Simulated assay, not measured.
Amino acid sequence: MLIVRSLLFNVAFYVNLVLWLIMLIPAFLVPRRVFMRLVQTWAHTSLWLLRVIAGTRVVITGREKIPPGGALVAAKHQSFLETFALVTILDDPTYILKRELMWIPFFGWYLAKARCVPIDRKAGSLALVQMTARAKDEAQHGRQIIIFPEGTRRPPGAPPAYKYGVAHLYQNLGFPCIPVAMNSGLYWPRRRFIRRPGTVRIEVLDPIAPGLPREEFFQEVQARIEGASNRLYEEGRRELGLGPSSSSETSLSKA
Rank of each mutant, 00 (worst) to 15 (best):
S125M: 13
L212S: 04
P159S: 07
Y164N: 14
L169Q: 04
A158M: 09
P207I: 06
Y164C: 09
Q140F: 02
V221S: 07
A161F: 08
T132Y: 14
I178A: 05
P176M: 00
I208E: 02
D206L: 02
G157P: 11
E220G: 01
N230S: 13
A127D: 15
R231H: 13
Y233A: 12
P155R: 03
M182L: 15
A127T: 06
V204K: 01
A135R: 02
P149T: 01
P179T: 04
G142S: 06
A139V: 03
V221N: 05
G165C: 07
E235F: 03
L205N: 07
I146G: 01
E138V: 01
I194H: 06
G236D: 09
E235K: 10
N230T: 10
K163Q: 14
P159Q: 11
V200I: 10
A167T: 01
R143Q: 05
G198A: 13
I146C: 06
G151D: 05
Q171G: 14
N172V: 00
E235Y: 07
E203F: 12
N230Y: 13
G142A: 09
E138H: 08
V204F: 03
L212F: 08
N172F: 03
M182Q: 10
D206T: 02
A167I: 03
G157Y: 05
R153D: 08
